[in-house]
Amino acid sequence: MIRKSGLLYKSFYILQKDLHQEFRTRYAINAIFLFAITTLVVVSFSIGAAELSQNILSSLLWIIIFFSAMTGLSHVFVREEEQQTADTLKLVAPPVAIYLGKLLFNILLLLGLELILIPLYVVFMDMSVGNLPVFILMIVLGSTGVSAVATIMAAIISRTSAKGALFAVLSFPVMLPVLILSIQGTALAIQGSSISAGMDEIQMLLLFIIVIVTASILLFEFVWIL
């Protein structure tokens, strides 16, 4: 039985508060969606009628997702610092609950973006997906990994002066394994490979998510309080 004041409830209340704020201001949503759609249109026009391999299609999709994430996922912590609500939050909730709430928000934001971006990508790039369930699984796992890295990096950079540049520079090396695995896995799904063919990527992505979330939970208190 989970107490209403338990950690998961607190994470949920933080998520709820962030969603509420986001839907009212649409600060991150606007940034991330406009960037993704603009990039998609630019990519689509520059490719023209050229026929692309599954690997290229998958790479271009994840490049758009990566840069969109870099545009919007740091807002969860940057907003708290800029509005001077970070200290208020520190006084009322344990760091782990705050991290989990913010992580869930970033996952939802990225998946929400993909819900719109991917159908448009399929149409603009004239792409057909061979194995839809595996494709969706790869997108969900890859996005969770990207969000997990982005959330802890957002906490780290939120009190620095050159937030935007630092966020991308610090996130990219840590995110690289997720991107490579997601690109490979998504290419397999576009080809129509079965789930067993993509099992290596799925397992590695799951492992990466577990490691990065665990490490973030352990480190977050030091990043957040000090």
Partner: peptide, 9 residues
């Protein structure tokens, strides 16, 4: 003075 509330709520 440095503890703010959520202004857009």
């Amino acid at each position: 003075p440095y503890l703010q509330l959520y202004n857009n709520l």
